[in-house]
Structure formats: C-alpha cells, structure tokens
Simulated scan of single mutants.
Amino acid sequence: MMVMFPREFSQRAAQAARVFIPAALALALAACAAEPAPRLPELDIDPDRVAVAGLSSGAYMATQVHLAHSDRLRGAALLAGGPYGCAGASLETALGPCMVAEPYAPDPARLAGVVRERAAAGDIAPVSGLAGDAVYVLRGRADTVVAEAVTRSAHDLYAALADDAGGLSLHYDGGRDFPHLMPTLDAGVDCATGGTPYLGRCGFDAAGEAMAWLFGPASSPAPATAAGELRRFDQAPYAAPGADPLLAEAGYLYLPPACAAGGRCGLLVAFHGCEQNADKVGEAFVRDAGFNRWADVHRVAVLYPQVRSSYLPLNPKACWDWWGYTGEGYDTRRGAQPRWLAAAMTALGAPMP
C-alpha cells in the first residue's frame, strides 16, 4: 500500500534529507576511516632467511631482538646504534655512556657476560644460536648523536661472543662521511645537512649493503622504484595480554610481487629510529629507506612496526624501548615489545618462541 504525505511534510522531509543525508554519509565515511587496518597475512616464509635491521634506537632494538631470538634469525644490520644491554634499564645511562660515551664508553667484555648469563637463564636465545649469523654495523663519521666508541662497541660485543657461537660473519663500516641518518642513493634530505626524516641523499645505498650482508649478493641490480605492495596492518592484535608495547595503531608490511603472489620469501624486520615513525614523518621511512627496492631482488618481505610517542611513560620521540620504558625484561624475550614482535612474526609465518 502506498502512503501519501501532505506537500508541506514532503517539502520538509526533502529539506531534512538535503541536510542530514550528507552528514550521515560523512559520519559513515569517518567510521570507515576509523576502522582498524587488516591483520597481517600468513606468508610462505623461509625460516633460514629471516633477519632484523634498525637505525639508531631501531638499531638497539634490532640487536635486542637478534640476541633474544638468534636461534631463529640469520643476522642483524645495526645502523648508528650501540651494544645489547648497554642502558641497563637506566635512561641516564642510555643518554650518557650509550650515546655519547660519557663519562665512560660501553664495555663489550662486561656486556658479553650479561649476554651469557641471560642466555643461560633462558631470557634470550643460547649464544650458540649466533653460529654463522651475519652482523653488519654501520656509522657515519659525521655522526654527532651516537659516538664512534658506542657503535664500535656493538661490533666488539659480537666479536667477544664469536668463539662461544662458533663463528660469526661480522663487518664494521665506519669510514663514510654522513651524519646521524639512514644514507640512501637519492632519497631524503641533503646528506651533509641531515635532519627530518633522517634519510639522506648520500650517494650510498645503506639498505642495499645491509641486505647483501644479511641475504647474500643480489642476483640483479635493484629496480629504480619498488614494484610491490606497501600495506598497513593493525598492530593491536599481537600485543600480549596485559602488556602494552606502546605501539601505534598501524604498522606497515612491504610485499614484493613474488611474495604477494604466494611464493616462498624471506623476511626482514626494519625498525625506524626516534622521530622517524609514521606519525612523525609519514611514509618516508617505510617507502624511501631503500629496503623495498632490494626486497624485490632478494624476495624478502619487509615488516615495519611503528612506535607511538608518549609522555607517561616518557618517550616523546617514539623511540624503541632500549632503556626500559615498557617495563621489566624489556630487552629479553619477556619484554612487551619483543613479545609483540614474536607474535607478529609468528602470524606472518616465521614462528618465534
């Protein structure tokens, strides 16, 4: 049955529709925009081709994850960072000895003892898990943020563990002229000037060098631009119950064409530096650091987890936790961020204990 309305009511209804339908549509679009990003896909990951890399605080995070899970990882690339366990859960130590080497530099021999103790207790992987791993340590000579003695001690800590591990493939590169940033061929700011987004046009492809050290020589040159897919994913589902890893809502995953098509691939976890998260620099790091181009060649998916800034606990620059702001065990398998990463990597198809 058709119901007829008086003309006045119809006119008012039409006027209301002109006002409220666009508003409702806007609210609906906003609700869609607010929906969380999808979960991580399950990939066909080669367990023998999984590694980590990071810049600055990301380098500290990379070495923490590497030593926590060296029995599941093939190596680490550490750019402008320092040694495992350096801060000892102290922000004062982090800002002094572990950045500027004042009033003293980190002691690799002492920290090697810390690694052995934690490995024996099961807090991190057995030292034997490092056997045959590839470790690449890079620092620019113009870096005024992290002292040369700090970065050198990251190398020396691995060297001190090499005999326990049964041998490592270890390389230190500290002879290039660039400041505290990720050097690229042609992306980012002027190399000599530096600054946000901490990618510099230095004529040096650090991502390519790091990935060659981690995954072997490339079979061909990297393409001028990456050909794969950069996807956002929801980071919340991978947090352990009752543990807040203080991450952003969304992270990023780069899939080379071969990986997106279901082929067998390796995996690289790339940790951004302080003030280099997506909330601060947009997609500069996840698109332009150089890893994606080489990921196409090496057939390696790249996971880009993202930290969020906070004042309680104190982490306004969205650094990775290498001094204890997420709580006890932050640099062991029990830490909130390492546990999150283990869950995320397991979801991707690279199981971590």
Rank of each mutant, 00 (worst) to 15 (best):
M1L: 15
E8W: 12
E8K: 08
A16P: 05
A16C: 11
R18W: 08
F20P: 10
F20Q: 13
I21T: 14
A28G: 15
A31S: 09
P47R: 13
V50S: 09
A53Y: 09
G54H: 05
Y60M: 13
A62W: 04
Q64E: 11
Q64K: 11
V65S: 00
H66Q: 15
L67Q: 04
L67I: 11
R72E: 04
A76M: 12
T93P: 00
A94D: 00
A94M: 03
L95N: 01
A101K: 09
A109Y: 09
L111M: 06
L111D: 09
A112G: 13
V115T: 06
V115N: 02
V115Y: 13
A120N: 07
G122E: 02
D123Q: 14
A125K: 12
L130G: 07
G132L: 12
A134K: 09
A134I: 05
V135Y: 01
R141D: 07
V146R: 01
V146C: 03
V150M: 06
T151H: 01
A154H: 03
A154K: 01
H155Y: 15
Y158G: 04
A160H: 11
D163E: 15
A165P: 11
H171K: 13
G174T: 02
F178P: 00
P179S: 02
H180A: 07
T184A: 04
L185G: 01
C191T: 01
G194L: 01
G195R: 07
G195C: 05
T196D: 14
G200W: 04
G203R: 07
F204K: 00
D205H: 04
M211E: 06
P217I: 10
P221S: 10
T225Q: 15
A226H: 06
E229K: 13
R232H: 12
D234E: 08
Y238K: 04
A239D: 02
G242P: 04
D244A: 09
D244E: 07
L247Q: 07
E249N: 03
G251A: 10
Y254F: 15
A260Y: 06
A261S: 10
G263Q: 15
G266E: 09
L267H: 12
L268P: 02
A270H: 12
G273F: 00
E275D: 11
N277Q: 11
N277F: 02
K280T: 13
G282E: 08
G282S: 11
G282A: 11
F285K: 02
R287F: 04
A289S: 15
N292Q: 11
N292I: 05
R299W: 01
A301F: 06
L303I: 11
Y304W: 14
P305M: 07
Q306E: 14
Q306G: 10
V307C: 01
S309Q: 09
Y311G: 00
P313K: 05
L314I: 05
L314W: 15
K317M: 01
K317S: 12
W320N: 01
W323M: 00
W323T: 00
W323C: 00
T326D: 00
E328M: 10
G329Q: 02
D331W: 05
T332Q: 03
R333H: 08
R334D: 14
W340K: 02
T346P: 03
A347I: 08
L348F: 02
